[in-house]
């Protein structure tokens, strides 16, 4: 039987349940995500047009501009943010956006890092549960 629980490293803690959206490439939220609609707007990105709202966004890392943290904060304010964010490598800019959102709006998507085994096990469409202790269950 396949393992269905993986321990992640917590950057910003929290709990969430949602459907996984796995991005095959990094995404810069600045110029890459419309915080008013939650839509991926980077036309060169393979997932352009997908909506991240309420999903568990799984991506290798962010990319580029430090203004990405502002876009994540704006998405939380407008209710278009993902339910949680899981990356394969530590991304300080995304974590910062979430940490500020927690201060400003009392909630934010948890941000976690999964090691390779866990990261590659998650597929788009899986339902994921993120626990306070950083355990990620594939339901």
């Amino acid at each position: 039987m396949n393992q269905t629980a993986y321990q992640a490293t917590i950057l910003v803690p929290g709990t969430a349940v949602g459907e996984a959206l796995v991005l095959p490439e990094p995404l810069s939220l600045w110029g890459g995500l419309n915080p008013e609609t939650g839509e991926i707007i980077d036309r060169r990105h393979p997932c352009a047009g997908q909506v991240v709202t309420g999903k568990v966004l799984v991506l290798p890392a962010g990319r580029g501009s430090s203004s990405a943290s502002s876009i994540l904060l704006e998405a939380v304010r407008l209710g278009t943010a993902p339910a949680a964010i899981i990356t394969a490598a530590v991304d300080g800019i995304l974590a910062l956006g979430a940490a500020v959102a927690r201060e400003m709006y009392d909630h934010s998507p948890p941000v976690l890092v999964l090691d390779e085994a866990g990261y590659t096990a998650v597929q788009t469409g899986d339902t994921l549960q993120i626990n306070e202790d950083g355990r990620v269950d594939i339901l």
Binding site: W30, P35, S67, S70, I71, L73, E74, R77, V100, M104
Partner: peptide, 11 residues
């Protein structure tokens, strides 16, 4: 970059 940045600074 957006209204939330202004709310942060004013907070």
């Amino acid at each position: 970059h957006g209204y939330s940045g202004l709310e942060f600074a004013e907070r």
